[in-house]
Amino acid sequence: MELALTLNCWNDEDLVFAQQFGVNHILAQPILPAPGVQRWDERALAALRNRVEQAGLQLVGFDGLPCPLDRSVRGETGRDDEIAVASQFITAAGAAGIPLITYGWALSQHTPSSRMPVGRGQSHVNRVAAPIADPMRATQTGWESYTYFLARVIPVAERANVRLACQPNSPFKPGLLNSTAALQQLLDTAPSHCHGLDLQHGALTHMPAADLLQAIQHFVKQGRVFCAQAQHIDVRTEGIAEGFLDERSTTGPAMLDVLQAYRAAGYNGDLRPAPPPGVTGDTEWGHKGHAFHAGYLKSLLQVARRLPEAMAQ
């Protein structure tokens, strides 16, 4: 299990940043354009991969599709155009040797949360006042349009030898995939070796600790977790807010237990931190916040890797 970071790979300084903090696995933000690069074709993707490798790092995938899926999610006319753009990108990524793409099945403009200085030390965190009743939630329409999308996109991914990893929905990105049952339904709907989960287990933190650990093991054991993300979401009566990874909620498991659950089930993919809360004097991407989260996951991963040796001491 390796620590990864999602960053803008066109930015030299950020590649050095990752290298210095000992993070060798990189997920690319789907950001365009770079100088001289106008669209995501195979050439641009190969150039991006080359940049990362030149820095001594490994590009393990793309963190997100560079195109909206709003019409596909709504099942509206025009979704075929979205699917064509996404398919083109997936094909180009495969040709450039980029093996993984994460994506979310959610509306791009649907932002129920606001970024407010209500986190630790008045850090800026995403917050929603109360659980969202989502119009797409668990409706048959929702699944129908999702099935339509998967039926067209998964064969493309299989031909390109690219693994698509879908993210659970969370209070911050409401949608269909908001329970372990929904995630399992997704895996069963599209039983392809090229389709699995980007297990952002923060989306499941409303579950009791034992259930969350069991859910992680349940999905990992099916061999369908392609990528993972650590995120702290604090569910309280007054609202739901993101926070720093070390802020353990009272009902949540210790992070070491989470990492052990992944490892015990045989997960050997990447784990990346969620975008951090905004801290004083930080950059837009959050270099200070990412450094904090990288350090936090580093030590825990180091301990998790040497278990059970550490327990015997």
Partner: peptide
């Protein structure tokens, strides 16, 4: 971050 993770 490293110290907090290690202590936890």
């Amino acid at each position: 971050g490293y110290m907090k993770g290690m202590a936890q």
